[in-house]
Protein backbone atom coordinates (compact mmCIF):
# COMPACT_ATOMS: atom_id res chain seq x y z
CA UNK A 1 0.00 0.00 0.00
CA UNK A 2 2.71 2.45 1.08
CA UNK A 3 4.84 1.51 -1.92
CA UNK A 4 1.93 2.06 -4.23
CA UNK A 5 1.18 5.38 -2.63
CA UNK A 6 4.70 6.74 -3.02
CA UNK A 7 4.84 5.42 -6.56
CA UNK A 8 1.67 7.33 -7.29
CA UNK A 9 3.22 10.44 -5.75
CA UNK A 10 6.33 10.07 -7.87
CA UNK A 11 4.14 9.88 -10.94
CA UNK A 12 2.48 13.08 -9.85
CA UNK A 13 5.81 14.85 -9.47
CA UNK A 14 7.00 13.64 -12.87
CA UNK A 15 3.73 14.69 -14.44
CA UNK A 16 4.03 18.12 -12.85
CA UNK A 17 7.63 18.46 -14.05
CA UNK A 18 6.58 17.60 -17.60
CA UNK A 19 3.79 20.18 -17.51
CA UNK A 20 6.08 22.85 -16.07
CA UNK A 21 8.84 22.34 -18.62
CA UNK A 22 6.58 21.66 -21.60
CA UNK A 23 4.46 24.76 -21.08
CA UNK A 24 7.00 27.12 -22.72
CA UNK A 25 6.56 25.11 -25.93
CA UNK A 26 2.97 26.25 -26.10
CA UNK A 27 3.06 29.78 -24.83
CA UNK A 28 5.29 32.60 -25.91
CA UNK A 29 3.40 35.66 -24.76
CA UNK A 30 5.14 37.34 -21.83
CA UNK A 31 1.76 37.98 -20.22
CA UNK A 32 1.09 34.25 -20.12
CA UNK A 33 4.49 33.66 -18.57
CA UNK A 34 3.83 36.24 -15.93
CA UNK A 35 0.48 34.66 -15.16
CA UNK A 36 2.06 31.21 -15.04
CA UNK A 37 4.81 32.47 -12.73
CA UNK A 38 2.30 33.94 -10.39
CA UNK A 39 0.25 30.74 -10.39
CA UNK A 40 3.34 28.64 -9.66
CA UNK A 41 4.27 30.80 -6.65
CA UNK A 42 0.75 30.85 -5.24
CA UNK A 43 0.46 27.12 -5.89
CA UNK A 44 3.60 26.66 -3.80
CA UNK A 45 1.92 28.37 -0.87
CA UNK A 46 -1.19 26.29 -1.42
CA UNK A 47 0.86 23.07 -1.34
CA UNK A 48 2.10 24.17 2.08
CA UNK A 49 -1.39 25.02 3.25
CA UNK A 50 -2.58 21.64 2.06
CA UNK A 51 -0.17 19.97 4.50
CA UNK A 52 -2.09 21.66 7.27
CA UNK A 53 -5.59 21.34 5.89
CA UNK A 54 -5.46 18.21 3.81
CA UNK A 55 -3.21 16.08 5.97
CA UNK A 56 -3.51 17.40 9.49
CA UNK A 57 -7.15 18.39 9.04
CA UNK A 58 -6.69 21.85 10.57
CA UNK A 59 -8.37 24.79 8.89
CA UNK A 60 -6.61 28.11 8.51
CA UNK A 61 -8.54 31.16 7.40
CA UNK A 62 -5.58 33.45 7.94
CA UNK A 63 -2.80 31.93 5.90
CA UNK A 64 -2.40 34.98 3.70
CA UNK A 65 -1.09 36.66 6.85
CA UNK A 66 2.07 34.52 6.68
CA UNK A 67 2.32 35.01 2.93
CA UNK A 68 2.07 38.75 3.47
CA UNK A 69 4.62 38.74 6.30
CA UNK A 70 7.13 36.93 4.10
CA UNK A 71 6.44 39.31 1.24
CA UNK A 72 6.75 42.45 3.36
CA UNK A 73 9.78 41.28 5.31
CA UNK A 74 11.65 40.69 2.08
CA UNK A 75 10.38 43.91 0.55
CA UNK A 76 11.31 46.01 3.58
CA UNK A 77 14.74 44.48 4.15
CA UNK A 78 15.77 44.69 0.50
CA UNK A 79 14.44 48.17 -0.15
CA UNK A 80 14.99 49.98 3.18
CA UNK A 81 18.03 48.16 4.54
CA UNK A 82 19.86 47.11 1.40
CA UNK A 83 19.75 43.39 2.16
CA UNK A 84 20.16 40.91 -0.60
CA UNK A 85 17.02 38.95 -1.50
CA UNK A 86 18.13 35.48 -0.44
CA UNK A 87 19.15 36.30 3.13
CA UNK A 88 15.97 38.37 3.45
CA UNK A 89 13.92 35.44 2.28
CA UNK A 90 15.63 33.00 4.64
CA UNK A 91 15.56 35.24 7.70
CA UNK A 92 11.95 36.13 6.89
CA UNK A 93 10.97 32.48 6.63
CA UNK A 94 12.75 31.78 9.91
CA UNK A 95 10.99 34.67 11.62
CA UNK A 96 7.60 33.69 10.25
CA UNK A 97 8.26 30.13 11.41
CA UNK A 98 8.92 31.40 14.94
CA UNK A 99 5.81 33.57 14.89
CA UNK A 100 3.77 30.62 13.65
CA UNK A 101 5.19 28.46 16.41
CA UNK A 102 4.45 31.01 19.11
CA UNK A 103 0.93 31.62 17.85
CA UNK A 104 0.37 28.03 16.88
CA UNK A 105 0.97 26.47 20.28
CA UNK A 106 -2.07 27.99 21.94
CA UNK A 107 -4.44 28.20 18.96
CA UNK A 108 -3.90 24.68 17.71
CA UNK A 109 -5.50 23.41 20.89
CA UNK A 110 -8.71 24.83 19.49
CA UNK A 111 -11.00 22.68 17.46
CA UNK A 112 -12.96 23.12 14.26
CA UNK A 113 -14.51 26.50 13.75
CA UNK A 114 -12.76 27.98 16.78
CA UNK A 115 -9.44 27.24 15.13
CA UNK A 116 -10.71 28.86 11.91
CA UNK A 117 -11.73 31.88 13.95
CA UNK A 118 -8.36 32.15 15.67
CA UNK A 119 -6.40 31.85 12.42
CA UNK A 120 -8.71 34.43 10.88
CA UNK A 121 -7.96 36.76 13.78
CA UNK A 122 -4.20 36.25 13.42
CA UNK A 123 -4.43 36.97 9.69
CA UNK A 124 -6.45 40.10 10.31
CA UNK A 125 -4.06 41.42 12.93
CA UNK A 126 -1.12 40.97 10.54
CA UNK A 127 -2.98 42.71 7.72
CA UNK A 128 -3.97 45.60 10.01
CA UNK A 129 -0.37 46.10 11.12
CA UNK A 130 0.88 46.08 7.51
CA UNK A 131 -1.81 48.58 6.60
CA UNK A 132 -1.08 50.95 9.47
CA UNK A 133 2.71 51.01 9.66
CA UNK A 134 3.00 53.44 6.77
CA UNK A 135 6.62 54.40 7.34
CA UNK A 136 7.75 50.83 6.84
CA UNK A 137 5.17 49.32 4.52
CA UNK A 138 3.92 52.30 2.53
CA UNK A 139 0.48 51.73 4.02
CA UNK A 140 -2.57 50.77 2.00
CA UNK A 141 -1.09 52.11 -1.23
CA UNK A 142 1.66 49.53 -1.02
CA UNK A 143 5.39 49.65 -1.67
CA UNK A 144 7.75 48.85 -4.54
CA UNK A 145 10.00 45.81 -4.20
CA UNK A 146 13.48 45.55 -5.73
CA UNK A 147 14.26 42.74 -8.19
CA UNK A 148 15.27 39.33 -6.87
CA UNK A 149 19.04 39.07 -6.68
CA UNK A 150 21.49 36.26 -6.10
CA UNK A 151 25.06 37.31 -5.29
CA UNK A 152 24.67 40.56 -7.16
CA UNK A 153 23.05 38.87 -10.14
CA UNK A 154 19.53 40.13 -10.70
CA UNK A 155 16.53 38.17 -11.84
CA UNK A 156 14.02 40.61 -13.24
CA UNK A 157 11.03 39.85 -15.43
CA UNK A 158 12.34 42.62 -17.67
CA UNK A 159 15.88 41.33 -18.09
CA UNK A 160 17.54 39.19 -20.78
CA UNK A 161 19.39 36.03 -19.79
CA UNK A 162 21.11 33.14 -21.37
CA UNK A 163 20.64 29.59 -20.23
CA UNK A 164 22.73 26.77 -21.71
CA UNK A 165 23.59 29.05 -24.60
CA UNK A 166 19.97 29.95 -25.32
CA UNK A 167 18.77 33.52 -25.03
CA UNK A 168 15.75 33.71 -22.80
CA UNK A 169 13.61 36.61 -21.71
CA UNK A 170 13.28 37.66 -18.10
CA UNK A 171 9.67 36.49 -18.10
CA UNK A 172 10.63 33.02 -19.19
CA UNK A 173 13.53 32.96 -16.74
CA UNK A 174 11.23 33.88 -13.88
CA UNK A 175 8.73 31.31 -15.00
CA UNK A 176 11.34 28.55 -15.06
CA UNK A 177 12.63 29.64 -11.69
CA UNK A 178 9.12 29.64 -10.19
CA UNK A 179 8.44 26.28 -11.82
CA UNK A 180 11.53 24.77 -10.23
CA UNK A 181 10.61 26.30 -6.87
CA UNK A 182 7.17 24.72 -7.14
CA UNK A 183 8.66 21.32 -8.01
CA UNK A 184 10.97 21.53 -5.01
CA UNK A 185 8.04 22.58 -2.83
CA UNK A 186 6.03 19.58 -4.01
CA UNK A 187 8.95 17.21 -3.59
CA UNK A 188 9.56 18.39 -0.03
CA UNK A 189 5.88 18.14 0.79
CA UNK A 190 5.67 14.61 -0.56
CA UNK A 191 8.72 13.56 1.41
CA UNK A 192 7.14 14.96 4.50
CA UNK A 193 3.90 13.14 3.82
CA UNK A 194 5.69 9.82 3.42
CA UNK A 195 7.81 10.31 6.51
CA UNK A 196 6.84 9.08 9.97
CA UNK A 197 5.76 12.64 10.71
CA UNK A 198 3.37 12.47 7.78
CA UNK A 199 1.89 9.24 9.02
CA UNK A 200 1.41 10.74 12.45
CA UNK A 201 -0.27 13.73 10.84
CA UNK A 202 -2.66 11.61 8.91
CA UNK A 203 -3.60 9.85 12.08
CA UNK A 204 -4.34 13.26 13.60
CA UNK A 205 -6.65 13.93 10.69
CA UNK A 206 -8.35 10.57 10.98
CA UNK A 207 -9.16 10.86 14.63
CA UNK A 208 -7.29 13.03 17.02
CA UNK A 209 -8.50 11.09 20.02
CA UNK A 210 -7.42 7.78 18.56
CA UNK A 211 -4.07 9.26 17.61
CA UNK A 212 -3.40 10.53 21.10
CA UNK A 213 -4.54 7.24 22.59
CA UNK A 214 -1.90 5.34 20.64
CA UNK A 215 0.68 7.82 21.86
CA UNK A 216 0.95 10.38 19.08
CA UNK A 217 1.68 13.81 20.53
CA UNK A 218 -0.95 15.52 18.45
CA UNK A 219 -0.24 19.09 19.56
CA UNK A 220 3.42 18.74 18.73
CA UNK A 221 2.74 17.45 15.24
CA UNK A 222 0.06 19.98 14.59
CA UNK A 223 2.37 22.83 15.64
CA UNK A 224 5.11 21.42 13.48
CA UNK A 225 2.97 21.27 10.38
CA UNK A 226 1.52 24.70 11.14
CA UNK A 227 5.04 26.10 11.23
CA UNK A 228 5.99 24.29 8.02
CA UNK A 229 2.96 25.56 6.16
CA UNK A 230 3.61 29.11 7.41
CA UNK A 231 7.22 28.87 6.20
CA UNK A 232 5.98 27.71 2.80
CA UNK A 233 3.68 30.73 2.66
CA UNK A 234 6.45 33.08 3.77
CA UNK A 235 8.94 31.87 1.16
CA UNK A 236 6.37 32.01 -1.63
CA UNK A 237 5.23 35.42 -0.44
CA UNK A 238 8.79 36.76 -0.59
CA UNK A 239 9.32 35.43 -4.11
CA UNK A 240 5.91 36.75 -5.15
CA UNK A 241 6.84 40.21 -3.88
CA UNK A 242 10.07 40.27 -5.83
CA UNK A 243 8.38 38.98 -8.95
CA UNK A 244 5.51 41.48 -8.76
CA UNK A 245 7.82 44.38 -8.00
CA UNK A 246 5.06 46.01 -5.97
CA UNK A 247 2.91 44.81 -3.09
CA UNK A 248 -0.04 46.08 -1.11
CA UNK A 249 -1.46 44.79 2.19
CA UNK A 250 -4.03 42.87 0.14
CA UNK A 251 -1.45 40.06 -0.08
CA UNK A 252 -2.03 39.50 3.63
CA UNK A 253 -5.75 40.13 3.51
CA UNK A 254 -8.76 38.06 4.45
CA UNK A 255 -9.91 37.70 0.85
CA UNK A 256 -6.61 36.19 -0.17
CA UNK A 257 -6.74 33.82 2.80
CA UNK A 258 -10.13 32.66 1.66
CA UNK A 259 -8.84 32.29 -1.89
CA UNK A 260 -5.96 30.09 -0.68
CA UNK A 261 -8.19 27.76 1.30
CA UNK A 262 -10.65 27.65 -1.59
CA UNK A 263 -7.83 26.51 -3.88
CA UNK A 264 -7.10 23.66 -1.50
CA UNK A 265 -10.71 22.57 -1.19
CA UNK A 266 -11.62 23.07 -4.84
CA UNK A 267 -8.59 21.19 -6.13
CA UNK A 268 -8.94 18.36 -3.66
CA UNK A 269 -7.81 18.43 -0.06
CA UNK A 270 -4.96 16.07 0.60
CA UNK A 271 -3.90 15.75 -3.04
CA UNK A 272 -0.77 17.76 -3.74
CA UNK A 273 -1.34 17.81 -7.49
CA UNK A 274 -5.03 18.46 -6.87
CA UNK A 275 -4.47 21.63 -4.90
CA UNK A 276 -2.11 22.90 -7.59
CA UNK A 277 -4.91 22.38 -10.09
CA UNK A 278 -7.12 24.33 -7.68
CA UNK A 279 -4.65 27.20 -7.77
CA UNK A 280 -4.45 27.11 -11.56
CA UNK A 281 -8.23 27.12 -11.95
CA UNK A 282 -8.89 29.90 -9.47
CA UNK A 283 -6.13 32.10 -10.88
CA UNK A 284 -7.18 31.58 -14.50
CA UNK A 285 -10.92 31.85 -13.91
CA UNK A 286 -10.91 35.64 -13.32
CA UNK A 287 -8.90 36.08 -16.53
CA UNK A 288 -11.49 34.10 -18.46
CA UNK A 289 -14.43 35.74 -16.70
CA UNK A 290 -12.98 39.22 -17.26
CA UNK A 291 -14.69 39.20 -20.65
CA UNK A 292 -18.08 38.83 -19.02
CA UNK A 293 -17.81 42.25 -17.41
CA UNK A 294 -20.53 42.83 -14.85
CA UNK A 295 -21.50 39.15 -14.83
CA UNK A 296 -18.07 38.19 -13.55
CA UNK A 297 -19.05 38.01 -9.90
CA UNK A 298 -22.26 36.06 -10.45
CA UNK A 299 -20.49 33.54 -12.65
CA UNK A 300 -17.56 33.13 -10.27
CA UNK A 301 -19.88 32.48 -7.33
CA UNK A 302 -22.00 30.10 -9.36
CA UNK A 303 -19.03 28.10 -10.64
CA UNK A 304 -17.53 27.87 -7.17
CA UNK A 305 -20.82 26.77 -5.65
CA UNK A 306 -21.70 24.20 -8.31
CA UNK A 307 -18.22 22.69 -8.37
CA UNK A 308 -18.26 22.19 -4.63
CA UNK A 309 -21.81 20.84 -4.60
CA UNK A 310 -21.19 18.29 -7.30
CA UNK A 311 -17.54 17.56 -6.55
CA UNK A 312 -17.38 17.85 -2.78
CA UNK A 313 -14.07 16.00 -2.70
CA UNK A 314 -12.51 18.49 -5.10
CA UNK A 315 -11.67 18.47 -8.80
CA UNK A 316 -8.82 15.99 -9.01
CA UNK A 317 -10.10 13.29 -6.63
CA UNK A 318 -13.52 13.39 -8.28
CA UNK A 319 -12.11 13.12 -11.80
CA UNK A 320 -9.64 10.43 -10.72
CA UNK A 321 -12.45 8.48 -9.07
CA UNK A 322 -14.59 8.78 -12.13
CA UNK A 323 -11.81 7.60 -14.43
CA UNK A 324 -10.92 4.73 -12.11
CA UNK A 325 -14.53 3.61 -12.01
CA UNK A 326 -14.84 3.74 -15.76
CA UNK A 327 -11.62 1.84 -16.21
CA UNK A 328 -12.62 -0.92 -13.82
CA UNK A 329 -15.99 -1.07 -15.55
CA UNK A 330 -14.50 -1.38 -19.03
CA UNK A 331 -11.88 -3.81 -17.75
CA UNK A 332 -14.72 -5.88 -16.31
CA UNK A 333 -16.53 -5.74 -19.64
CA UNK A 334 -13.46 -6.92 -21.59
CA UNK A 335 -12.99 -9.91 -19.34
Amino acid sequence: MIVKLSEFRLKGLVFLAIVVFALPLFISNPFHYSLATQIALIAGAVVGLNLLVGFAGQISLGHAGFFGLGAYFSAIMTSHYGWSAIPALIVGAFGVGIIAWVVGRPILRLKGHYLSMATLAVGFIIAIILNNEREMTGGPDGMPVPAFDVFGWELSPFGQYSLFGMDISGDLAWYLFAGVVLLVAVWLAQNLIDSPIGRALRSVHGSEVAASVVGVNTTKYKSLVFVISAVYASVMGALYAHFQGFITPAVAGFEFSILLITMVVLGGMGSTIGVIIGAVVLELLPQVLADFQEFEMVLFGLILMLTMIFMPKGLLPTVANFLAKRRSKSAGGDA
Binding site: N29, F246, A250, Q287
Partner: peptide, 28 residues
Protein backbone atom coordinates in the same frame (compact mmCIF):
# COMPACT_ATOMS: atom_id res chain seq x y z
CA UNK B 1 -6.85 44.84 -6.08
CA UNK B 2 -3.26 45.82 -6.91
CA UNK B 3 -2.06 42.43 -8.11
CA UNK B 4 -5.08 42.13 -10.37
CA UNK B 5 -4.28 45.58 -11.71
CA UNK B 6 -0.74 44.51 -12.49
CA UNK B 7 -1.96 41.37 -14.24
CA UNK B 8 -4.41 43.28 -16.37
CA UNK B 9 -1.82 45.92 -17.21
CA UNK B 10 0.41 43.09 -18.32
CA UNK B 11 -2.42 41.62 -20.39
CA UNK B 12 -3.13 45.01 -21.98
CA UNK B 13 0.48 45.56 -22.91
CA UNK B 14 1.50 42.10 -23.98
CA UNK B 15 -1.64 40.33 -25.13
CA UNK B 16 -3.87 43.12 -26.31
CA UNK B 17 -0.95 45.25 -27.48
CA UNK B 18 -2.67 48.53 -26.71
CA UNK B 19 -1.21 51.84 -27.85
CA UNK B 20 -1.83 53.77 -24.67
CA UNK B 21 -3.30 53.07 -21.23
CA UNK B 22 -5.79 55.36 -19.52
CA UNK B 23 -6.75 53.85 -16.18
CA UNK B 24 -5.79 52.91 -12.66
CA UNK B 25 -8.59 54.16 -10.42
CA UNK B 26 -6.67 53.86 -7.18
CA UNK B 27 -3.13 54.75 -6.24
CA UNK B 28 -2.36 51.15 -5.28
Amino acid sequence: NASKARNFASRLIRSDRVDIIVGGSTTG
